[in-house]
Design a protein around this nucleic acid. Structure first.
Lengths: 252, 252
DNA sequence: AAGTGGTCTAGACCACATC
DNA sequence: ATGTGGTCTAGACCACTTA
């Protein structure tokens, strides 16, 4: 249509903006149906591809989700608060409660597809755990679900010689989890550091977490240290960004 | 083309996967040029829209960036570490150093487009600062840049009656910033809580932070409390997700 | 059966970058 | 001048949902 005005925004973007404003203003709210491709074609007199492009903007922003055969809908957001400090307080795991209970106020997290294996430490793991690159580590991978919704993927690495022969090497680590077992070995975690990155998920992460398009993930790398400052665990977590709010508190 | 095989992945996705693998394997690395639309059309025998769709997948994932008139390139990632605790240690702001110096190891952050205004507290601000919804707050907005690259947008809210007549109401708050001024008022921040969300940016945020498509933002909400647990500031920050790593540490 | 979104083709004109 | 990505049209067939 040879864009009559000089450098006006493209049509698909203007259509997207119209819809975005309708959503932001509350005119359309969580779960409401957004005008579909056919409706936008009629309403704005554009070709199908242009209407689609407008919708794809909102979908890639995570504001809307498309449901095949049904329509496009406004997407809600009601996340879970994950509290950095309270979650890892000593009372929790030292009394046999799983750490994951802390977030969810008694709603149980389910653990999924647990795999345990021993391997040579990858470079970044060796660095975090203060090992040499050839050293062996135990790797524990699992997925967490809440009400059947997958929420997070987690991979823990521990020095293999430290946990050899303990239940940490078995799928079920017993009451209190890994940290309780480390405490029994005299290697109780006393100090934690967490690094948080955000990015778009890989295709693998998208399927494992059932993410809809436009959903970013949080990547949390946590190192657990004993009171002697020995690094005893690296936990790499990938969280569904639409499902979590991380909370930290600290003193000046 | 009537998709010959049954439920094989769509062509554009297979093309995207090919490219993704080439990137992940290091065959293509940061800044390298990715095969463009014309190249993909020839190589895979598809229409232009299909080649474009394949590239748009990578762009929306933040793996690649398109440069008009030039080509599509692999995108690098070299973030800045923002340390939750060290940044806000009392020594920093109590000795007149700006908080922002802490992240960057002496590289200076520049402040941009500062606006100060007084207004009625929005609902979420009133809640965070423990005010009534009609109460007045001072709002300070600004943008931070590092080496001319915009890194973060920040909006602070403070109870208006608390800071009336101080330099907090002026664009330049003086040495040590807001927190030093609060300390002079006997309201020194002693405790902080931060909440972190991740989402895709709004169009406004995308332009203000010069974000390329596929870049999520971190949204940090920080409340500063005095030692008497009075909430004296709410700071809402929007960080370029490709530019930051947040770090926190704490004890069990 | 009708409507919806998902994929794909085959064209077109534009603005911009590089040579 | 040529090639690149950006936008747009006008069709087509498919799989799925809803009624």
């Amino acid at each position: 249509m040879l864009t009559p005005e000089n450098d006006s925004p493209p049509v698909y973007r203007e259509i997207a903006d119209t819809l975005r404003i309708a959503i932001a203003s509350g005119e359309l709210s969580d779960g409401d149906r957004i005008p579909g491709e056919n409706e936008l074609m009629k309403r704005h007199g554009v070709a199908r591809a242009t209407a689609r492009q407008a919708l794809s903007v909102l979908i890639n922003e995570g504001i809307a989700v498309a449901v095949r055969g049904s329509g496009v809908y406004v997407r809600g957001f009601s996340p879970l608060v994950r509290h950095g400090r309270r979650r890892l307080s000593k009372e929790l795991w030292s009394t046999g409660r799983a750490i994951w209970g802390a977030d969810t106020a008694e709603r149980p997290f389910a653990t999924d597809s647990v795999t345990v294996s021993e391997m040579r430490a990858p470079a970044h793991v060796a660095r975090a755990l203060d090992l040499d690159e050839g050293d062996r580590v135990l790797r524990r991978r699992r997925r967490y679900r809440l009400d059947d919704r997958p929420m997070q993927l987690a991979t823990s690495y521990l020095p293999a010689e430290l946990v050899a022969g303990t239940s940490v090497t078995r799928p079920d680590t017993g009451p209190g989890g890994i940290y309780a077992r480390l405490a029994e070995l005299g290697q109780a975690p006393a100090h934690f550091t967490e690094e948080i990155r955000v990015r778009m998920p890989s295709p693998d992460e998208r399927t494992k977490l059932s993410l809809s398009p436009g959903t970013p993930v949080m990547h949390v790398m946590r190192v657990a240290l004993t009171k002697e400052h020995r690094a005893v665990e690296l936990n790499e977590m990938t969280l569904d960004g639409s499902a979590y709010v991380l909370q930290y508190d600290f003193d000046a």
